[in-house]
Design a protein around this nucleic acid. Structure first.
Lengths: 138, 138
DNA sequence: TTAATTGATACTATTTTAATATCATTTAAA
DNA sequence: TTTAAATGATATTAAAATAGTATCAATTAA
């Protein structure tokens, strides 16, 4: 069962890398090229990922020579749930379980209610894990 | 975010249909054709799904004229978690999160531990939802 | 013997995901 | 002013996963 796509995976790697360099205080703005070298990710694909993070106001982007990306949301405030939702949409297990014919009567379905509880738990937990934590835990 | 595949979806529909006819006491053995008519599912595809359920000892299958499928595991003992695992493998969020480079040091990773807890909760909850329940809740 | 069923396997089509190619725009520095 | 190095945007291609079809063999009750 696949829970995160490669988009999300690469975004996490890039952000964790950025967070680590931030901790060391050596860098503010990181280029795509730097991340590609460090993490061995496909360049143009990664650029689109970083662009999307900038678009979502998670990163700031700077164009031109000496340009690159920096955190807009500090890594300590940036959760796993947030990054997943950027690339895979809002986490909503009730929407993928039992939709359509399987569960036409949404409001009356007891199963849906149960899954809602599961979902809330998952989101709460994923919300509590930050990029900063991830960058320190290894 | 897709949590169940079409395999699982169709399997659930078929099993729920079978469970409903079982309740009414009219039928024991159900044919693929019957399910296809009632649920509008692609026939050959569904056959493979039912075959797999038989192979996994969830259904019994009977060949020849008047053949078909019946429950081997009673629907009250058949959980959502079980059906999902047949078509999508064991539910293991820790295995899809943070694998490979992202989390090379499995044992030391605090995040993995957190996700393990999430995972256990999800499985426990999905294990408590049965086909019988699903066939009654709508 | 036949019709209706499942068993098994090979194949095709569709959709999603991943990755590349390319050109425009921006900007600091030579 | 020019140039190099960066992001912005978009079109295209490639690969993988998912979904579905086709077909024939084996079984079995009528």
């Amino acid at each position: 069962m696949k829970f995160i796509t490669r988009d999300t995976d690469y975004a996490l790697r890039a952000l964790i890398f950025m967070s680590k360099t931030l901790r060391q205080g050596h860098k503010r703005i990181v280029t795509t090229e730097e991340i590609v070298c460090a993490e061995k990710l496909p360049k143009v694909f990664l650029r689109r990922i970083l662009q999307k993070l900038a678009e979502k106001k998670i990163l700031s982007s700077y164009k031109g020579k000496t340009g690159g990306f920096s955190f807009l949301v500090p890594p300590g405030k940036l959760s796993l749930a947030c990054i997943i939702s950027v690339f895979q949409g809002q986490i909503d297990l009730t929407n993928c379980f039992l939709k359509g014919k399987i569960c036409p009567n949404r409001s009356a379905c007891s199963v849906r209610k149960k899954i809602k509880v599961i979902n809330a738990g998952v989101i709460k937990d994923l919300d509590s894990i930050t990029i900063q934590e991830l960058s320190k835990s290894r």
